[in-house]
Design a protein around this nucleic acid. Structure first.
Lengths: 208, 208
DNA sequence: AGGAACATACCAACTGGTCGGTATGTCACG
DNA sequence: CGTGACATACCGACCAGTTGGTATGTTCCT
């Protein structure tokens, strides 16, 4: 049997990929209810027929787009090299520093699609909510790991690595909300600096 | 002439008030794009005619509802008595404690309408964005005051009162996003505990 | 005082446009 | 030739806003 055909699709499903990328772009800019299926089609340069050929519904696409965004986010942080430090505490701090460095350009370019979409859909679209939750958890997992390592290495106790990872996620999401409310990143950056200081203090406290 | 008629309005503007209250309830639950004008009318028990008699547009109502929510929020915190402590630092901590205590019941009952709406509308409805920003700033102002007083009284420097107030707002908003993402308040409460600890540490640091 | 003139508060039915989704193609390729 | 990948045309539901009306004040004039 030679039925494996995995790689036998040169430009196959090209429209699907473009739709997904377009969805991330537009959903991030306009939110879920604020974007129409045709907005996404226009951005992708395909027609509605193509859209509903590849996705059963708008909800379906939103779930897929959440996954796509999540992958993109992980790749972005992977490339940043925040885990490339000897001391795990430095890794955690480098994560926050990279978060700060990211606040450049227009608001939709640095804010989080997952946090935005989940606010709109948590009550009405369970599948989307779950996809957003999964993306956030996936992103938080390595941070929690590094925090746990740092706590071990520095002999710090008094809180759980998970709770601090959640705290970091919350501050980041809150920073995005504020940036949108005030229409600029300045306050958001200040917030992340406070977060950085907090983490540093938590670990300096127990140092000799 | 007894032309004063102030109190001579038994049911004057009753519908308007009910529409505003209904708007706060429904917008908080479903967001801006997710609620129809008729949703609000149904909740208020009036017709669309009444709605458009009192408000020029859906946008117009959203702005008014933001103001209404803001008033309600200020009254809520006023009643909580968080400013009733001798030491301004205790007041700031009491604010956070009250925020923690509030996480009860269903999600729409403890989350913030302003933070939710501004995410949806910041790019498309400048008036709504501004109303949300104003509400948040109004809420942050007394906190900033108390922080400034605490810094003075405890001789703490190294950051501005404004930036810490913004940080508190961000953590609170981020906690709401997380609560919606994971469909429960537990992580959000943990986040606020971290915030509380941070504030305590900031002021303990410089103490003798 | 009394009633014409006007204003306010609300209602029910409708409209014009939008949007998610469908039905029906067409065409390339294996 | 038939199947997957798209395009075109269209539908029904929904929704912000309108229209035209009624009922109940309020003001002003005589």
């Amino acid at each position: 049997m030679f039925l494996r055909m995995e790689a036998a699709r040169p430009r196959r499903n090209e429209a699907r990929t473009r739709l997904l990328d377009a969805a991330v772009t537009v959903l991030r800019r306009q939110g879920y209810a604020g974007t129409t299926v045709e907005d996404i089609c226009t951005e992708a340069g395909v027609t509605k027929g193509a859209f509903f050929h590849h996705f059963r519904s708008k909800d379906d696409l939103a779930v897929a787009a959440a996954g796509r965004f999540s992958e993109w986010l992980e790749a972005l942080f992977e490339r940043s090299g925040w885990r490339g430090h000897a001391d795990p505490l430095d890794r955690v701090l480098a994560y926050v520093d990279f978060r700060i460095a990211i606040f450049r350009g227009a608001i939709p370019q640095y804010t989080c699609m997952l946090g935005m979409m989940v606010q709109e859909t948590y009550a009405t679209n369970p599948a989307i909510r779950l996809a957003c939750e999964a993306g956030i958890r996936l992103h938080a997992a390595p941070i929690e790991e590094e925090i746990a390592a740092a706590m071990r290495e520095h002999g710090v106790t008094g809180f759980t690595a998970g709770s601090l990872a959640v705290h970091i996620m919350a501050v980041v999401q809150g920073a995005f909300v504020l940036a949108k409310a005030v229409d600029g990143p300045d306050g958001a950056v200040e917030t992340l600096r406070h977060l950085r200081r907090y983490i540093a203090m938590l670990f300096r406290e127990k140092a000799p």
